[in-house]
Amino acid sequence: MSDERRGGDSPTWGRVGPEDPTADPATHPALRVPDAVSEQPTVAVPTGEAPDGPEGDDSTTVRRAIPATRTGGLWSALILSAIVLIFLLVFILQNTTPVEITFLWLTGSLPTGVALLFAAIAGVLLVAIPGTGRILQLRREARRH
């Protein structure tokens, strides 16, 4: 496909990286690696060569950054959620003294921990419902443009 049909300055389909593969990051700011990348955890990858010395030589391994993945983030979120759930369960089991609850014309008795749990759920819903509405509104607006 010619450049005229693509609109001139748009890159070739499937092209990855700079136009000049020998471009120097020192002279092209877009090619510089952010500092945060160097702080990622690394893993030693053997190069397949045998070490020279009896105690082993670190020059035979290459350090590569381990990329962050969605699965890793999900796993972290699940562990954090399980810890919070355990603390919530301990809180509810330790606060079993009944308390009288009155709302409008309704009156009832609930354990203190359960009553506070219902209050927390109501607070989350008061924040989540308008927030969800705003997210949907912004998505609709983004699709239009």
Rank of each mutant, 00 (worst) to 15 (best):
L88I: 06
V99A: 02
I86E: 14
D57S: 05
V90Q: 13
I79H: 11
S59T: 07
L85G: 05
L80R: 14
R63P: 09
L74M: 11
V62P: 00
R64S: 06
T97H: 03
D57V: 00
Q94C: 10
S76K: 14
T96L: 14
T102K: 14
A77N: 07
V99Y: 00
V99M: 01
P98N: 08
T71W: 04
D58G: 12
E100D: 11
I92N: 11
T96I: 13
F91W: 09
T69V: 04
F91C: 01
L80D: 11
N95P: 00
S81V: 01
N95S: 10
I79L: 13
T61A: 12
A77P: 02
P98I: 02
I66M: 15
P67G: 08
N95E: 10
L93H: 11
I92H: 02
V84C: 12
A65P: 07
W75K: 08
A82T: 10
L88W: 08
L78D: 07
R64V: 15
T60P: 00
Q94Y: 11
P67S: 04
G72Y: 00
T69E: 03
G73I: 03
V99I: 11
L80F: 02
T71R: 07
L85A: 15
T60A: 07
G56I: 04
R64T: 07
T97G: 09
S59P: 03
T61Q: 10
P67T: 05
W75C: 03
T71H: 02
T71N: 05
G56C: 06
N95L: 01
T102R: 14
L88R: 12
I83N: 10
I83K: 11
T69S: 13
L78I: 05
S76I: 03
E100Q: 13
I83P: 00
F91E: 06
L93K: 15
V90P: 02
D57W: 04
R63Q: 15
L80I: 04
S76N: 07
A77G: 07
V62H: 02
S81I: 01
G73V: 03
S81L: 12
V62F: 05
D57Y: 00
L74G: 02
L89C: 06
L74V: 08
D58A: 15
Q94W: 13
P67E: 05
S81Y: 08
I101N: 02
T71M: 02
T97S: 13
S76W: 01
V62T: 13
D57Q: 05
T96A: 12
G73C: 04
T69Y: 03
D57G: 05
I79F: 05
N95W: 05
V90Y: 09
